[in-house]
Write a protein that binds this DNA or RNA. Structure first.
Lengths: 338, 338
DNA sequence: CTGTTAGCGCATTCAT
DNA sequence: ATGAATGCGCTAACAG
């Protein structure tokens, strides 16, 4: 399909060496006399040679690619992770292949198969819905790293921020602003076999209340599904409880956005009547009216760490993982109470 | 890396046929006796055989993949297109490879190279920043279709909605609501060699005004960069002009979102003081306060059409492209004037 | 219809 | 250090 295909043989000829020598300098393997090396490099440049990845992979058994399965490009959080992964891989000889799970378990599963068929040398999951047991099984036969998700059984290859702590601090911020009745919009995830980030957020919220001498009120904890719409619904549910609250902590920004609309529909002003905080620092959070107080995770670094971990794994080493924590982003959606 | 690799030879043996017969039934090419075919299929199932894509591609010269270069997963518009592409490809033997251009020309360019190295059989650009001339050049040596972008020189492989018409209707909607002074936030694109969608939007806006006996006022047309932040800036610029306006048409939802915040900062209410409309129907548009009137493009269908066109192109045919148009989504961000 | 054979382009022993 | 030879797994003529 492309222009007349030039192969390793063409440059071998042009450089007056054998194809194995060419292969050697290209693969940077064993030593080659400088003069020959340069001749080869020159020929490569002159002929604009592009190695055939299929032949390479077929012969070597390695694809030199790592598959990245993500759920939602477009959000700064995930974008940051991807950027980090790309950066982290840049110095290596591996390149990334992407697939979008679209928050759909089936699609995600298929992506794994596609990547398996493509013989990727490693798999990085960014978030995702796949069960922990499945991931563990995959990790058995191929180097696997999971980012932005906390899995009990795979702690050595999980990169995530301390959601508990961030949620704790966020809740504390509300408490210190004078709020006593703080509602929480959580979510039940599919992959609930293990402790999820959302669940950690819930725990942090509860612990902060307890530590402040307040007791979590089940009537102030409602469940959404992480989608925006469920945030609006959550407001209705909360209002129905008739349990007063002056602040709401939504487990993610999307639900906070929905909650914002729900409050608007009910004529409740933010933050005058109700304070609102989210989690993730999505792009739209800063442009909400009023801008949303939330938590930002160091996504780029997390992505780099993931790439690093993957490289270690492929190298047969046990990755040494850093600790990450979220940063409180204070904006105008919170008012002092009383 | 995977479990003991089973090859075409293994199943040939197990099915008591030659490897070429196996290849034949797998490739669905020439006829094979039913009994043998079934034996092969059985063996394939029993051994859970996965063809080695590298060997396939190396031998056939085709990768059976088409590369999709996109800019922003996460927005419903692009998500819809991707979903459509995937659907459209499903019935074929081609599978998609994705790369995220991240609205960065350099990254996008690199993605093209990566795909070229991967010997993709086709290239689909979803939006993008690459110049028309470059795309034309690429299209010369590999089947290329461009979605969500209007290119003068590649009309036969461009899939896009009629932005002019939609903008015209949207502006008309404002006019019919009694607005006379309608501001517009447009944007200058990098690839401005040709008529862009954003420019079409601007034209539709102007034409609607003219047709209504109003004359477009340059002071009411400001320029952003499609990012949210520039929407807020645009408000400042408009206010500085001291030219009164009762409605704003932002060329995309992101800028509308920014404008919303800018208005809020200036104490201007939406829609009481100023009506606001956007374009694209992003997820957050429906959750703005108040929800944003905007235009939705039939993205899924456009994606399917793109896949269809690609298949035709690969087949050496000239694709027959359908016409698409945007749908006005009326929400609460517009009030009657006077 | 079906089996045999020759590459696809490159990595990799194995000699030298 | 370097060339020759072998094979990765599969497709595509080529013969029967």
């Amino acid at each position: 399909m492309a222009q007349r295909k030039i192969t390793i043989e063409d440059i071998a000829q042009k450089a007056n060496v054998s194809i194995s020598t060419v292969s050697r300098v290209l693969r940077k393997s064993s030593g080659v006399r400088a003069s020959k090396r340069e001749a080869v490099l020159q020929a490569v440049a002159d002929l604009d040679y592009r190695p055939n990845v299929f032949a390479q992979s077929l012969a070597s058994g390695q694809s030199m690619t790592i598959g990245v399965i993500t759920q939602n490009f477009g959000s700064p959080f995930y974008d940051g992770i991807l950027a980090g992964i790309l950066q982290g891989l840049e110095s290596s000889d591996y390149s990334a292949l992407f697939a979008d799970g679209r928050w759909d378990r089936v699609i995600e599963q298929r992506a794994v198969e596609t990547f398996t068929d493509r013989r990727v040398d490693g798999l990085i999951f960014v978030g995702g819905q796949l069960s922990e047991s499945f991931l563990a099984e995959v990790g058995q036969r191929i180097p696997t790293v999971v980012v932005a998700r906390e899995l009990a059984s795979m702690n050595s290859n999980c990169i995530f921020a301390d959601n508990f702590k961030a949620a704790y601090e966020l809740t504390n911020y509300l408490i210190e602003a004078g709020h006593r009745n703080i509602a929480h919009i959580t979510a039940k995830m599919h992959y609930q076999e293990a402790v999820t980030d959302v669940e950690q957020r819930l725990r942090g919220y509860k612990q902060a209340l307890v530590d402040a001498g307040l007791s979590p009120d089940p009537r102030l904890i409602v469940e959404g599904n992480l989608q925006q719409q469920s945030g609006a619904l959550a407001i209705e549910m909360l209002l129905m409880e008739k349990q007063p609250f002056s602040a709401i902590f939504a487990a993610n920004d999307a639900m906070a956005l929905g909650a914002r609309l729900g409050l608007y529909r009910r004529g409740l002003r933010v933050p005058d009547d109700v304070s609102l905080v989210g989690f993730d620092d999505e792009a739209s959070a800063a442009y909400m009216v009023p801008p949303l107080t939330t938590v930002r995770q160091p996504s780029v670094q997390m992505g780099q760490e993931a790439a690093q971990a993957m490289l270690s794994l492929i190298n047969g080493e046990l990755p040494e993982l850093a600790q990450f924590h979220g940063e409180l982003i204070i904006r105008e959606s919170v008012a002092r109470q009383r």
